[in-house]
Simulated scan of single mutants.
Amino acid sequence: MIIDLHSHFLPAEWPDLEQRFGTPDWPWMRHTDPDHAMLMMGNRDFRPVYDACWNAERRVEEMDRDGIDIQVISATPILFAYGRPADQAAYCARIFNEAALEICARAPTRLRALAQVPLQDTDLACREASRAMAGGHVGVQIGNHVGERGLDDAGIMTFLHHCAQEDIPLLVHPWDMMTNERMSRYMLPWLVSMPAETQLSILSLILSGAFERLPRSLRICFAHGGGSFPYLLGRVDNAWRNRDIVRVDCPRPPSDYVDRFFVDSAVFDHDALELLVRVMGDTHIMLGSDYPFPLGESPVGGLVRSAPFLEPQARARILGGNAACFLRLPDTR
């Protein structure tokens, strides 16, 4: 069974959030024709999209084209509303989580959904995660930070403990990337800051000692191949060995923690995938495409299928076996 763990959706429409809350710069959809739209942030164009975001039939048609059995859909991160009051983010989580289930209901054997939560409020986030799982979601997607709070923040750690206790798998997606004027063009925030954000999140859990305090039952996956982490791990280990300020809260070399989390396969290059497999092992990588966005993989799964260095069992684990276990999916072939 081939499972794409990392794909995104947008509803065709949703309530006017600016009108509801009386504040500007909320996301909305400006449809240009029946099959195409512009995702807006207030008055600003954010991203052109097409109907695979909301049309289950189109999505399944393209899954069949690429040989994908199941796609796991999750919200586009600008829908998180982490910078808004928590009750407003909770409202957004509800409407977008229900929209995800409505899309999945049109292809119930092919589509599964990850929920979003109002991560800025620990109690509300735990409550929505549990509600969503009971309602049919198979896991939760969170952003990699809330303002200045990283994943090792006490409130977010409480949420991670909750997910471990309730057996809720997590996908961590980078968002709200660090940027400045030097990265104002060429999509550099997506090309430079996004991989750095993911590495920062992983290292925040390792170097802070958070993984020492979190139960091993926590199932957590980082998108985009773990960002910069796998390719700079040697540098991090070297810093841990030589600088006590790096290892002060981390009792073991950072490379000892790679069995505590998963990454997806969205690295787009055979050499990068080969190094990723060497660092993470083929049991901790899952197929992820970032479909249906322009920076996503096309055809989905093409990199893993064509990788000459993968043995058949390793290829099968990455293409679907690992995700089936991670999400506790039954074999629906």
Score class of each variant (00 low, 15 high):
residue 252 R to W: 11
residue 264 D to C: 06
residue 64 D to M: 12
residue 59 R to W: 12
residue 242 N to C: 11
residue 51 D to R: 13
residue 102 E to I: 04
residue 120 Q to F: 04
residue 113 A to V: 03
residue 112 R to G: 01
residue 70 I to M: 01
residue 178 M to W: 13
residue 178 M to V: 15
residue 45 D to I: 00
residue 238 N to E: 10
residue 242 N to K: 14
residue 287 L to H: 12
residue 182 R to V: 11
residue 121 D to Y: 08
residue 71 Q to M: 07
residue 40 M to S: 00
residue 269 D to H: 09
residue 22 G to H: 04
residue 213 R to V: 02
residue 233 L to M: 05
residue 62 E to F: 14
residue 84 R to D: 02
residue 274 E to M: 09
residue 75 A to Y: 01
residue 43 N to L: 12
residue 70 I to N: 00
residue 24 P to Q: 08
residue 90 A to V: 00
residue 92 C to M: 14
residue 241 R to F: 04
residue 317 R to T: 03
residue 327 L to I: 03
residue 201 S to Q: 03
residue 301 G to S: 15
residue 75 A to G: 01
residue 9 F to W: 04
residue 64 D to P: 11
residue 259 D to S: 07
residue 38 M to W: 09
residue 197 E to D: 13
residue 310 L to I: 13
residue 208 S to Y: 02
residue 70 I to Y: 02
residue 328 R to Q: 08
residue 53 C to I: 05
residue 307 A to H: 15
residue 237 D to Y: 02
residue 220 I to M: 10
residue 184 S to D: 06
residue 84 R to N: 01
residue 298 S to P: 11
residue 76 T to C: 14
residue 26 W to V: 00
residue 299 P to V: 06
residue 273 L to Q: 13
residue 229 F to D: 12
residue 40 M to K: 03
residue 319 L to A: 05
residue 258 V to H: 06
